[in-house]
């Protein structure tokens, strides 16, 4: 698997370049700004793009703009955006690009858990949607009223599937059987009037769309 990295902090860029090969991820190019990212992607045709949201010259959302325009060219290009803060508007814009699949929105905090981070990158490259737990926590806060009817366990399950975990991964994290997880998912989707679906990805997007919609 080959990635192109865009990150303006040299320290972090070199750290990622050194770390990812340990997990069998080849770094095709590591660049420091948005125009270089676009050029590198066109040149190397990577399996995944990892980009910082903020980059020079204005340090606002150059990385995100570049990611959105790359997704406009190729809606299936997997992209992981790294951000220092939760910014719902930016996360939403990225999710709206292409089919919503093969998208990752992660806080930079997650890079520290190196093995898990590499796992997230692989899953996005394989077509999954991965959303930072902090983003999901804040989204669930926003829809607190309707979520009150869920049991505590169902809320845990909802949070995990919104982050993009499969039934198997959810079962492992919560120490449940996969059948148990499937039952919880069925119950909570019914309570929230969401379509029942076995397709993990379609479910993630439905749950995210539900959480992101205005509560009133």
């Amino acid at each position: 698997m080959r990635v192109v990295i865009a990150e303006d902090s040299v320290l972090l860029r070199e750290g990622l370049t050194a770390m990812l090969p340990r997990f069998g991820i080849e770094v095709a190019a590591a660049v420091g700004d948005a125009p270089a990212l676009l050029a590198a992607v066109h040149e190397h045709r990577p399996d995944l793009v990892v980009t910082d949201v903020r980059m020079p010259p204005n340090h606002t959302d150059e990385g995100l703009r570049a990611a959105v325009s790359l997704r406009a060219e190729d809606p299936r290009l997997p992209v992981v955006a790294l951000s220092q803060y939760v910014q719902h508007s930016y996360a939403g814009e990225l999710l709206a690009s292409g089919s919503g699949r093969s998208i990752g929105y992660l806080l930079k905090d997650r890079i520290g858990d190196v093995a898990e981070f590499a796992g997230h990158l692989r899953r996005v490259a394989d077509g999954a949607t991965v959303i930072d737990p902090e983003v999901v926590r804040q989204l669930m806060q926003r829809r607190r009223d309707p979520l009150r009817q869920l049991t505590a366990r169902e809320r845990e399950v909802l949070s995990l599937i919104a982050q993009g975990h499969s039934n198997a991964a959810t079962a492992r994290i919560l120490s449940l059987t996969e059948a148990g997880v499937a039952k919880h998912i069925g119950n909570l989707l019914t309570k929230l009037n969401l379509p029942l679906s076995d397709d993990t990805n379609r479910r993630v997007l439905a749950v995210l769309a539900y959480l992101r919609s205005r509560s009133d």
């Binding site: 320290l11 890079i111 093995a115």
Partner: peptide, 19 residues
Amino acid sequence: DIAQQRLVALTMQIGMARL
């Protein structure tokens, strides 16, 4: 620009060392 980026890099290095 300085403190946060260094902290992310530091956390990553610790993560690598733990491996």
